[in-house]
Deep mutational scan, measured.
Amino acid sequence: PAHPYDRLKTTSTDPVSDIDVTRREAYLSSEEFKEKFGMTKEAFYKLPKWKQNKFKMAVQLF
């Protein structure tokens, strides 16, 4: 299930529990994912792991 970005980011005051914290981005809706990352999930997962992590750090999901 998708969760709002505000509850997934590492600085959230009301974090979602029971998620894989190493894959926070996977819980974003497709729309919100595209808004935050500027690309689709499919394109994101084709990137090298280090680049994925760099993007995730930039949007507080790492």
Results as ranks from 00 to 15, higher is better:
D18Y: 03
D14M: 08
W50L: 03
R24I: 11
K36C: 14
K34M: 15
L8A: 01
A43K: 09
M57S: 07
S29Y: 03
K36V: 15
P4R: 05
Y27M: 01
F62G: 15
K41H: 09
F37W: 03
S17T: 15
E25A: 02
P1F: 09
D6F: 01
A58H: 09
G38Q: 12
L47Y: 09
V59K: 03
D18L: 07
R24P: 05
P1K: 15
K51H: 07
G38E: 12
F37N: 00
V59M: 15
K34H: 15
P15S: 03
A58R: 13
V16Y: 07
P15R: 03
D14P: 05
E25H: 00
P4D: 09
A58T: 12
R7Y: 09
K56M: 05
Y5H: 07
S29L: 01
N53H: 08
E32C: 08
E35R: 08
Q52D: 01
P48W: 13
S12M: 06
T10H: 06
D14I: 05
K54E: 14
T10C: 14
F44W: 07
L47V: 01
N53P: 01
R24W: 09
E32D: 12
D20Y: 01
A43H: 10
M39R: 01
D6R: 00
G38A: 07
F44M: 04
F55N: 02
S17C: 14
P4A: 11
Y45L: 04
K36P: 00
H3Q: 07
F55E: 11
P48D: 06
F55I: 13
K9G: 11
D20P: 01
P15C: 10
I19Y: 03
T22Y: 08
H3Y: 15
I19D: 05
R24Q: 06
R23I: 12
Y27I: 03
S17V: 12
I19W: 05
Y27G: 04
S30N: 15
S30R: 13
T10R: 00
W50T: 05
E31D: 10
E31M: 09
D20V: 03
S12V: 01
K49A: 12
F44I: 00
M57V: 12
Y5M: 02
L61K: 04
S30Q: 12
R24V: 05
L28E: 02
T11C: 15
L61V: 11
Y27Q: 04
K49S: 07
L8W: 05
L61I: 05
I19V: 05
K34P: 05
E31R: 06
T40Q: 05
Y45D: 03
K9M: 12
N53R: 07
Q52I: 02
S12N: 04
D18R: 01
L28V: 03
Q52N: 00
D18N: 13
K41S: 10
E35F: 06
N53Y: 08
F62Y: 15
F44D: 00
E42N: 15
Y27P: 03
G38H: 13
D14W: 09
A58F: 07
S30C: 14
L8E: 10
S29P: 02
P48L: 02
G38F: 05
D18E: 10
S30L: 13
V21Q: 09
K34L: 14
L28W: 03
P4S: 11
F55C: 12
E35G: 05
T11W: 05
L28N: 03
F37M: 07
P48N: 05
W50S: 04
V16G: 04
K51Q: 12
W50Q: 03
V16A: 08
F33N: 00
F44Q: 00
A58W: 07
S30W: 10
L28D: 03
E31Q: 13
E42Y: 13
D20T: 03
D6V: 00
T13I: 11
F55P: 01
T13F: 06
Q52Y: 01
K56P: 11
K46R: 13
T10Y: 12
P4T: 12
K34Q: 15
T13N: 12
K51A: 14
T13P: 06
E25R: 05
L47D: 00
T10A: 04
S29N: 10
F62V: 10
K49L: 15
Y27K: 04
D6L: 00
Y5K: 04
S17K: 14
A26M: 15
M57I: 13
W50F: 07
K46C: 14
F33I: 01
A26F: 12
P48V: 00
Y5F: 08
A2I: 15
V21T: 10
L61D: 03
K34S: 14
K36H: 13
K54N: 12
T22H: 08
R24F: 04
D18T: 06
V16E: 05
K46Y: 06
F33H: 01
Y5G: 04
P48Y: 02
E35V: 10
G38V: 07
T22Q: 07
K46S: 13
F44C: 01
N53I: 14
D18K: 05
L28C: 07
E42L: 11
A43Y: 09
R7S: 15
E32Q: 09
Y27W: 02
S12F: 04
V16M: 03
K56A: 01
D14K: 08
K46P: 00
K54P: 01
Y5T: 04
Y5I: 04
L61M: 07
Y45V: 07
Q60M: 13
M39A: 01
P1Y: 13
K51E: 13
D18A: 06
